[in-house]
Design a binder for these strands. Structure first.
Length: 554
DNA sequence: AAATCCCCCAACCGCAGACAT
DNA sequence: CATGTCTGCGGTTGGGGGATT
């Protein structure tokens, strides 16, 4: 293993050293650079999520696996929403916190595009503010779960939470809509195609609250949980028995009305299970990932993931793409959800279902390219660094032929269908213990990568896009047998550029997602140094094709 | 203008569970 | 079954930057 000395310590980041066989690898800590983001994003596109430690081993990225996972999950993965929480989201967070407590990951599962870290930060900030103001954490209508159902094993924790929740209960103001720190309980957007509506009618509340949300923690979420957790409760009020504390009734902000509708964007259904179920064990070997030991694509592969989330995250995809063919959502008798997928190509999520932030920059065009001149640079001014990679990927897609796009779509369709089938198996099998191993589809155009780079969609994250001979694949960043000398040189270059980027290109405050123009350009140039333009004719082909060129960055 | 306070948020750390060997 | 590894989660920290003094 080659030691990449990328951590200089003078960029705000520090280094760790881990033992790696015969040598020690300097692992960088601290803020991420745009160059590192690109490497990470390219790797995930190529190999899917998981194997975070392998990432460190097989790329030039001198980051520990945990750091990579965090960076991907919080900043780079597709369809992340950025910016402040909306009123609806804030309401939902409060509601979920009352129900779940500090289960940030579960809360994040209910808030498409939001990360647990975001929610946690939001809540902690809010907590401090309300404590300082002496206001209660919850509106009077929201009764925290643990207050409804104290459990002996958690009394200590509950007591602490109680103290948090009502820091100065006697000084709190009445939570009128104007005085409450919480958003007023106005009706949310009740687009029937993209929202749930809660009819919180007394005793039936729990039965509505709970089953409607496939990710509600007391609902079995995974096949393994199906067997290990109690089945959904029958249609009776949880209040009917003091022993039944599983499904609390939550008045949902307005108990003046016995029939209050509460609507919020529908969370992704079971098709987007907790990553803890699916992201595990992609590759436990120390050998470089390849296409034979890779786990099937959906839903964590870069291909399926993009389409998957944009496709299924209805509140966003539907608004961004009114013409997108609908998928039918079934709330089945057993309170689990399923989808009906139209296997026809017309129902496949095309670029029209891309996140809205892309639409301002990216115009789907079946025959030619768009925003190809300085795709990264031109986008960056409006987008945080975590979206740059997506732009690049979409940019790439737009450079492919219709045939290639067709292959791409079929691949994703296979992935989606694969998931549906798998989910059906899981639900049907019930009680089967562990979820079945994810099927490895026998055909996927992605499996042709090692044979034909022309189909290498997502490996082309940076560099030139339409030259089949010079595609800058992440594969090229991996040490290959017989390429030791060359790769060493490349890795040294990367190490240098990262080191150098740390010294000069990275913004000083370490807020890695806020990449400055200079920083980004420098980072791109750093990559340009790895892929000399003179070896890639297309790179200099700054002409009719509008192909990306390093020269364009100047 | 300088100092201080506070908010925000990215990233790290430790722990626990799942899984492989 | 024991052990090691990997991953995810929740708690915490620390720096940047705006607001306030």
């Amino acid at each position: 293993m080659i030691l990449y000395g990328v951590g200089t310590g003078n960029d705000g980041g520090s280094t760790n050293h881990i033992s790696d066989g015969g040598g020690r690898v300097a692992l960088k800590k601290g803020p991420w650079t745009a160059a590192e983001d690109e490497i990470l994003a390219a790797y995930v596109r190529e190999n899917g999520e998981g194997n975070w430690n392998a990432l460190q081993k097989h790329t030039c990225l001198a980051r520990c696996g945990k750091s990579c996972r965090l960076r991907w999950a919080n900043h780079l993965r597709p369809n992340l929403k950025k910016g402040s929480f909306t009123g609806d989201e804030e309401r939902l967070i409060i509601q979920l916190h009352a129900q779940l407590g500090n289960k940030w990951a579960r809360m994040a599962a209910q808030l498409p595009g939001r990360t647990d870290n975001e929610i946690k930060n939001y809540w902690n900030t809010r907590l401090k503010r309300l404590q300082r103001q002496g206001l209660p954490l919850y509106p009077p209508d929201v009764i925290p779960n643990h207050q409804l159902h104290p459990h002996p094993q958690h009394q200590h924790q509950q007591q602490n939470q109680h103290q948090q929740m009502y820091f100065h209960p006697h000084s709190s103001q009445p939570n009128t809509p104007s005085s409450s720190p919480l958003p007023s309980p106005t009706q949310l957007n009740a687009n029937p195609s993209s929202s749930f509506t809660f009819h919180t009618t007394n005793a039936s509340t729990a039965n509505l609250l709970h089953p409607l949300s496939p990710h509600t923690p007391t609902t079995p979420q995974t096949p393994s949980q199906l067997s290990s957790r109690p089945p959904p409760q029958p249609l009776s009020s949880p209040l009917s028995s003091p022993l039944n504390n599983q499904y609390p009734t939550l008045p949902l902000f307005n108990n003046n009305n016995n029939n209050t509708n509460f609507t919020f964007p529908r969370p992704p259904p079971l098709l987007q299970p907790p990553s803890s179920l699916l992201a595990r064990r992609y590759n436990n070997s120390n050998t470089p990932l390849n296409y034979t030991n890779r786990v099937s694509t959906a839903p964590f592969s870069p291909v399926s993931r993009d389409s998957y989330t944009s496709f299924l995250t209805l509140p966003y995809s539907s608004s961004a793409a009114p013409n997108t063919q609908p998928i039918t959502y079934h709330n089945t008798n057993n309170n689990y959800s399923s989808f009906s997928l139209n296997p026809s190509s017309s129902s496949y999520p095309t670029t029209t279902s891309f996140p809205s932030f892309l639409h301002s920059h990216y115009t789907p065009n079946s025959s030619s390219t768009s925003f190809h001149t300085n795709p990264v640079y031109s986008m960056k001014q409006d987008l945080p660094s975590n979206q740059i990679s997506q732009i690049c990927a979409f940019n790439n897609v737009n450079n492919f032929t219709d045939n290639e796009k067709g292959l791409h779509r079929r691949s994703i369709s296979c992935s989606l269908l694969e998931d549906v089938m798998e989910e059906a198996e899981a639900l049907d099998g019930g009680g089967g213990g562990r979820p079945p191993k994810r099927r490895q589809l026998t055909y996927s155009p992605l499996n042709n990568h090692h044979n034909n780079n022309d189909n290498d969609f997502f490996s082309v994250t940076f560099g030139q896009y339409d030259s089949s001979e010079n595609i800058c694949s992440l594969q090229d960043l991996k040490p290959k047998e017989g390429e030791t000398l060359e790769m060493n040189t490349m890795q040294e270059d990367i190490a240098k550029l990262l080191d150098w980027g740390s010294d000069s290109g990275e913004i000083s405050n370490g807020q890695s997602s806020a990449v400055t123009d200079e920083n980004l350009v420098l980072d791109v140039h750093q990559f340009a140094s790895l892929f000399p333009a003179d070896s890639t004719p297309a790179a200099n082909d700054n002409n009719d094709n509008n192909n990306f060129s390093w020269d364009d960055l100047d």
